[in-house]
Write a protein that binds this DNA or RNA. Sequence first.
RNA 1: GCGGGCAUAGCUCAGUUGGUUAGAGCGCUUGACUGUGGAUCAAGAGGUCGCCGGUUCAAGCCCGGUUGCCCGCCCCA
Length: 437
Amino acid sequence: MSKQQVKQIRTVKHTRDILPRDFTSDTSAQSHKFQYIESVAREAFRRYGFQEIRTPIFEYTELFARGVGEETDIVSKEMYTWRDLGANNTPGAGDSLTLRPENTAPVIRSYIQHQMWQQSDLAKLFYIGPQFRRERGQKGRFRQFYQIGVEIIGKSDNPAIEAEVIEMLDWILKELKILNTTLSINSVGCPKCRPQFNEMLKKEIEPRLVNMCGDCNHRYETNILRVLDCKRDTEIVAQLPSIQDLLCEECRAHFAEFCRHLDKRKLKYQVDPKLVRGLDYYTRTAFEVLTTSDDLGSQNALLGGGRYDGLSESLGGPPSKGFGFALGLDRFVMSLPEEVSDPSIPKVFLAHLGKEAFEFSLILAGCLRKVGVSCAMDFEMRSLKNTMKLADRSKARYTIIIGEEELTKGRFVLRDMVTREQLELTEAELLEKLKAN
RNA sequence: GCGGGCAUAGCUCAGUUGGUUAGAGCGCUUGACUGUGGAUCAAGAGGUCGCCGGUUCAAGCCCGGUUGCCCGCCCCA
């Protein structure tokens, strides 16, 4: 059968492969960059005392419906949901399951399921993994995307916790040299003061509704806070009351404390009263780090997060405070300023000439690898010139040349591919030298 | 869910008012150079021009449909 007759199977629409550098020139989809960001994040988590949690990538649909909110865009139209097999493998008769569209609700579910509060007053958890939302893709948006996030759950809602997280994020961004960013913060109030603000907002907006865009009319019904975020009706929005002026005493004090802790750490931020979040569970502090470059197309949010003090209870757990963020790994990769070194580049390339040298090289490569040296070699019989071309392309720092001469002498040519210096070394000397640097 | 743009070699793209055997650059393989990479030169491999139909003596090009991708809206990371 010719290949044209067989339909090619490709990635599902709006999903993509993250490939090794060798196989793609798309710098936003290279696996070593994802690894690099993950390693920087893991180092931050080590320093700040976070422990890794890995939850399943699918959960009962109910978790997200209750945790994230039925009315949110995520739950109402963006989830991958299906019916599991029921009894006797009856299709569609089983539980409703969903690929996770975010990871906070699963982490809280796990916190409750394993009664983590019994072990510690404060659980400091981080996760790294794929999330799934059924959206139309565009620059910086995919149906399977990757997030790194943390959740701090437990007794305390001290704003110092929030400032500490911001400090950690600041370190991660600087370490990655992602510098063209701004931090926006706001308070979205609590169950005590937000309903009053929503009421007032409704009253203010209602008479102006006829002059506002269709989206705002929709938001008026579903999530009135989001009207504040509208980019079209900016003149009208500017006349609306600010939530900052209507916070209750406790929320006001909490927010002031948060700002004070940021100031003490000399962390720069701007208060944005229009910053609201799309997920129902947020209370009090909300924040976003936005990029000022256009690397992300029309997207500008690199990460976002906030406080969710009621989430545990709404999922049937004990009253617990919670604070966390999620950062978009794909978007971080797109924002990296420079080429990052690829750890898969081998240290040494073994260039063999002839069958006998090939056999020897196979064993020598094994010896080098056992002492921790990464090696690459070719499995064809080529001229030295062509083998050197491969060595060059592999970007290995050193090449060991192994031919008949070397085999009889027991001394091998070690070529430094950058300085072009060559040494003649015995096998033992090779191992020693390459191991050392 | 709604808009806009684009589909030609592995990649980036040319391709004239429709005209014979479909091109370039990069990459790949080989050679010039018998055991030394990056440079240069040469040769070679690699295409049902996304798919289906229509118009025409003739379609990569025109028309209709379809699929895919990209970008934007909504929303988010």
